[in-house]
């Protein structure tokens, strides 16, 4: 036990050096990492939803927290007026984990502009078909103020054959966003205005 001091000292020195170098690298790369996520994933999705270059939209970002879940919300402005929102949500219940999607909302007509997949880990060829335009087309024009369900449960969304879990996760994420919009629309717009 005489050498316990040395054991402790060596471990403390190694751990401190490690912590110091990691926190340095982390702080110096943090903004770049955030940008990469926006650039590779959210930017293209936003550009397709609003048919506007991603560079004009990525900076318009607020984070709304409801019921312990954080929803990143992007918005489109025409002049001073906020005309569109894109709300990101994680649909639970996918076969390989949550499906993160972004739902575009047209505030002028109170309808859904469309849905884009931000990330998923569904099976290639089966659940991964949620990315296909034909499936996502069903989201275009959905009215706000209601909720959606799969055709099998009496709703309007046709599930992908052999990928019921993935389809349900899409419906779950969509309902989270619709619910968020119906209950907190004024609060979200206030948060954007106060930014």
């Amino acid at each position: 036990m005489r050498d316990i001091g040395r054991l402790v000292l060596v471990l403390v020195v190694i751990c401190s050096l490690s912590a110091a170098s990691l926190s340095y690298v982390r702080t110096s790369l943090a903004t770049r990492i955030e940008q990469q996520g926006d650039y590779y994933v959210r930017g293209p999705a936003l550009a397709r939803l609003f048919q506007q270059p991603a560079s004009q939209l990525l900076a318009n970002k607020v984070k709304i927290t409801r019921d312990g879940t954080e929803y990143p919300v992007f918005f489109r402005k025409d002049g001073d007026q906020v005309t569109g929102l894109a709300v990101e949500a994680a649909g639970q219940g996918g076969y390989g984990g949550p499906i993160v999607m972004m739902i575009g909302i047209d505030l002028a007509t109170d309808t859904v502009l469309g849905v884009e997949i931000v990330s998923h880990s569904e099976t290639p060829g089966l659940g991964a078909q949620v990315e296909k335009a034909g499936f996502r087309q069903q989201w275009v024009g959905l009215p706000l103020g209601s909720s959606v369900a799969l055709a099998g449960s009496g709703g309007s969304v046709d599930a992908i054959t052999g990928a019921t879990f993935s389809s349900s996760a899409m419906v779950d994420g969509t309902n989270q966003v619709l619910d968020l919009m119906n209950k907190n629309r004024a609060a979200i717009l206030a948060e954007i205005a106060g930014r």
Binding site: C15, R26, L29, I33
Partner: peptide
């Protein structure tokens, strides 16, 4: 393990960036 973990997190961060 501390040395290895440090390097792995370095790789992870730079890969993300």
């Amino acid at each position: 393990i501390v040395v290895i973990a440090t390097l792995v997190v370095l790789v992870e961060l730079s890969m993300k960036a």
